Simulated scan of single mutants.
Amino acid sequence: MAENNWQNFLKNLGEWRGSFTKISPQGDILDSTLSIINLEGLENNQLVKFRLRRFEGNDYDQTPTQDYTQEYRSLGKQIIFFETGTFSKGSLQLAPFSDFGSEFGFIKSDRRLRCVLLYDRQNEFSSITLIREFRSNSNAEEGPQLTLEQLLGKWQGIAYTAYPDFRPTDKFETSLEVNQVADNQVQQTLCFSGATLTSTANIEGNKLVFNTGDNPRQIFLLPDGTSTNAPIKLELRKPFFLEVGWLVNEKERQRLIRNYDATGAWIGSTLVIEHKID
């Protein structure tokens, strides 16, 4: 229901201090900008006022270089909030010669992590924006750069798939096993809803490259326990998905997946909350 989407949105209320970090299509960190985001509930939380300020340098007390506000009484149909407050937002449709992108937002206690994946008008992967946020006046800390060693092992989880038409959310069990099978190769096996998918990637620095199949993909291992999993190029008339993962701690990982069908239409988003068992 749309009203539940709004209630889940409200779990993000507060003041969040952090930074916007631009990352190249090759996974290189380019630059960062400090930010403060305020999400304030008004009129008995029927209205939410959004304010974004960005700052140059390393000081939140200076005059912001950007100060943007917006008010919300409802949410667009391109965004879904899960019960935890985590959300998936992005383009409704892949189309020729148009920009395409998705935002993935996680929240856990006094931390938020958001990541934006963008494609250019030729449908080629063009940039990552990583947004690391901490609730003001909290003791929340940033996680370390994600490493392959942290992902190795067996993970069991619960997945929740939500749909644009707000039909009831599907819930199912998942398992993921990640093994390093050679000095420069890693293999992962994913099981869900009776299906088993196995794939092998080459290890290239902070990147895992999956070249098998007709749609090559790459996973970047990024700061604050973040991973991105996306096609190098989006192909028209082929289904695809975009994914961002967040290693909340050594034993818990969350993944957000945004799914598109062969027509390029967004058909649903999945939140996976998984725990390491081995």
Rank of each mutant, 00 (worst) to 15 (best):
W6R: 07
L10H: 06
L13N: 11
R17F: 02
G18S: 12
G18K: 13
F20C: 03
P25I: 08
P25Y: 01
Q26N: 14
I29K: 06
T33E: 09
L34P: 09
S35K: 04
S35R: 05
S35W: 09
N38V: 13
E40S: 13
F50M: 03
R51K: 05
F55W: 01
F55A: 07
Y60P: 04
D61T: 07
P64G: 06
P64V: 00
T65D: 13
Q66Y: 04
Q70M: 15
E71W: 05
Y72C: 05
R73I: 03
R73C: 03
G76D: 07
I79Q: 11
F81S: 00
F81D: 11
T84I: 00
F87D: 03
F87V: 05
S91Q: 08
S91K: 11
A95E: 10
A95Q: 09
D99K: 00
F104H: 13
F104L: 06
F106R: 10
R111Y: 12
R114H: 01
L118I: 08
R121W: 07
E124L: 13
F125I: 03
S127Q: 14
S127H: 10
R132P: 09
E133R: 04
N137W: 11
E142K: 06
E142L: 01
Q145M: 13
Q145H: 07
T147S: 14
L148Q: 06
L151E: 09
L152Y: 03
I158C: 12
Y163V: 14
P164S: 01
P168H: 08
P168V: 00
K171L: 04
T174Q: 10
E177S: 13
V178F: 04
D183L: 07
D183S: 00
Q185D: 12
V186D: 02
V186N: 05
L190W: 15
S193M: 15
T200F: 03
T200C: 10
A201L: 09
V209S: 14
F210Y: 15
T212E: 15
P216G: 02
Q218K: 12
I219A: 03
F220A: 01
P223I: 04
D224R: 12
G225I: 02
A230H: 10
L234H: 02
E235K: 10
L236H: 08
R237N: 14
P239C: 04
V244W: 08
W246K: 02
V248H: 12
N249K: 05
E250T: 06
E252M: 07
R258F: 14
N259A: 08
N259Q: 07
D261C: 08
G264H: 02
G264F: 11
G264Y: 00
I267K: 09
S269P: 15
T270I: 04
H275S: 15
I277C: 05
D278N: 13
